[in-house]
Design a protein around this nucleic acid. Structure first.
Lengths: 345, 345
DNA sequence: CTGAAAGCGCTTACAG
DNA sequence: CTGAAAGCGCTTACAG
């Protein structure tokens, strides 16, 4: 592969001059610029980003460590992150933690070894050692979706509180009183917050959230299945199961189906995180939708602010309820008296 | 951040010795090794991968350019690719082409600029200039899923021919005679092949595939919707619509639903590529499943073979039919006389 | 406007 | 077993 030396030789100038035209430095004669450009195309020369990074101490690359690539929520997030980063002149390298702290650590370490300029993380657990090190070492960093309390890093996330209130109002209006939740890992903020928001919303309606109605999931489908089976085995099973993410509701559907029960007649279902397929499941699933795209973009902007020496700010965007049929409502019938946004599809 | 010099100073040895212990070189005294190790942990030293790459001319990194991250098929592929690569000591950087040749080119260029050791591509179109350059320049490369005819690069893919035959046999046994297909872009191999396989399978049953029953999609949901509407507007609409990927069948479902029609009563649906949600759509969707995980692993092995100087071979793995209810069959009823694999869920 | 030179953080043949 | 030195491909202050 041609190097800058080859280009210099071909153009009859020094490598310094080649470098200058490559980087758009103003003080280069028109003649030199022309010859270098010609040499570059003649040789099909592409600057070696590795060498450039070593010299300039910047890679123009962001690292993104997500909890699970197989979860459509994170996949959408990754896409918007990459788009915004590209628009701002950065590349992004994605690491998939698969909800495993050790894998998360592996990726953080690898990314840091590659000297990425900044790190975007949706932490899998309460903070793996490598992650904490990175934060302490002052690596420009921002958390997306999930965060780690006590670590001084901006957080870009959705606030589901009001949407969860809308959901509970919706369920209450439909006559449901026994509401259960499949929680995410207690070590994650989203795992805890969604339970808290749910409990608070229930309290506003004078309802309790008994321990038996809090199932411990791990954001994976299998845990949703297992927890739901537990609920169905209860002497008094819940009337509604609210899954804290879209994969666990998949598992819940599996479990309900395996028992030969019907949604919403026998049991109602709802989920945090909306995905396109929810329109076509049987029945269509009521969900809380995050502004995923904007979250990804805001996170990138905050991170690049930090990277370039500005102060990146935390951002919180509201999530919203999308009512479909899985809780018993017919969105078109106007049965539901509370003011919630309805699905248009 | 501590450099190798700092470690050398701390340990009281030369940087050469530090480098040797870091790389497990045998001829280092036990004493030196101990002091270096101590210095490394004392300083929290991590070797700079950028500098190492520049020197050794290898990055231990593979590039993966996929057509669309939002498509679960590619997301699964990416996951297995990363897993196998990691097991073999490589990292992978993913580029999402979003089915756009210009974006594909952008990623190929960026990846090459970073001097990745090898490139895994599922080409979006007939081959963007940058991709062709890369192949010509001798960059170790392998195609996954889709490939470019005439380019001398190993291909790792699934052969859907026999599964498509099984599907057509299944449809024929159910009494369907007017079968239509939503094709992928003609510029992609999978776009063309699936139509060819479908046509051949129809021919075996004495059925034709009229032009009006071939809709031109682009592997995105919206095109599936548009094409399906066209089918439904035909004087004689098809009885079955077979979508060449899972996103287009989503669009087809949207279109069918918008007309107030039912699947499979009014029209049957099937798709290439299986996803977990198909079990829970209304109705569950009959699909052709690829051995995605094995494809990803095989592709990585073939690529690393090339990178390390061995001859990476092409691999073709069979896809299989998974019968559900979207074509009118009740998988449990044994209605279908042909020997096809049934969904167990 | 231009070039020679230093240096980014490593690895590795060479000499001892 | 160990170190001094060269060099990977760039960028950039410095001098002219």
């Amino acid at each position: 592969m041609a190097s800058i030396k080859d280009v210099a030789a071909e153009a009859g100038v020094s490598v310094a001059t080649v470098s200058r035209v490559l980087n758009g430095h103003p003080s280069v004669s028109e003649d030199a610029r022309r010859r270098v450009t010609a040499a570059v195309t003649a040789l099909g020369y592409r600057p070696n980003a590795v060498a450039r990074s070593l010299r300039t101490d910047q890679t123009r690359t962001l690292g993104l460590v997500i909890s699970d690539v197989l979860n459509p929520y994170f996949t959408e997030l990754a896409r918007s992150v990459e788009e915004e980063a590209r628009a701002l002149g950065y590349s992004v390298i994605i690491g998939n933690a698969d909800e495993r702290p050790d894998l998360q650590d592996h990726h953080v370490r690898t990314l840091l070894d590659r000297r990425i300029d900044g790190l975007l993380v949706s932490p899998t657990d309460g903070g793996s050692p490598g992650m904490l090190d990175a934060a302490r070492a002052g690596t420009p960093m921002v958390f997306v979706d999930r965060w780690i309390p006590g670590v001084d890093v901006p957080v870009v996330r959705a606030d589901g509180r009001s949407a969860v209130r809308d959901l509970v109002a919706h369920l209450h209006a439909l006559g449901h009183r026994r509401l259960a939740i499949i929680a995410g890992p207690a070590a994650t903020t989203t795992g805890r917050e969604r339970v808290d928001a749910f409990r608070e919303a229930l309290a506003a309606f004078g309802l309790e959230l008994p321990d038996a109605y809090i199932g411990q999931g791990d954001f994976q489908a299998e845990s949703g299945r297992r927890v739901t089976e537990g609920f169905l085995d209860l002497p008094e099973p819940p009337e509604v199961v609210f899954a804290a993410d879209n994969l666990m509701v998949l598992g819940a559907l599996d479990a309900v189906r395996a028992r030969g029960l019907r949604v919403p007649d026998d049991i109602a279902l709802a989920a945090f995180d909306d995905i396109r397929w929810f329109v076509h499941t049987d029945p269509p699933i009521t969900a809380i939708a995050q502004p995923t795209d904007e979250l990804g973009r805001a996170a990138v902007r905050a991170l690049i602010d930090r990277v370039e020496g500005r102060t990146g700010e935390s951002v919180t965007l509201p999530a919203r309820l999308v009512v479909r049929r899985s809780c018993g409502a017919d969105p078109a019938s106007g049965q539901n008296p509370t003011a919630v946004q309805r699905s248009t599809s």
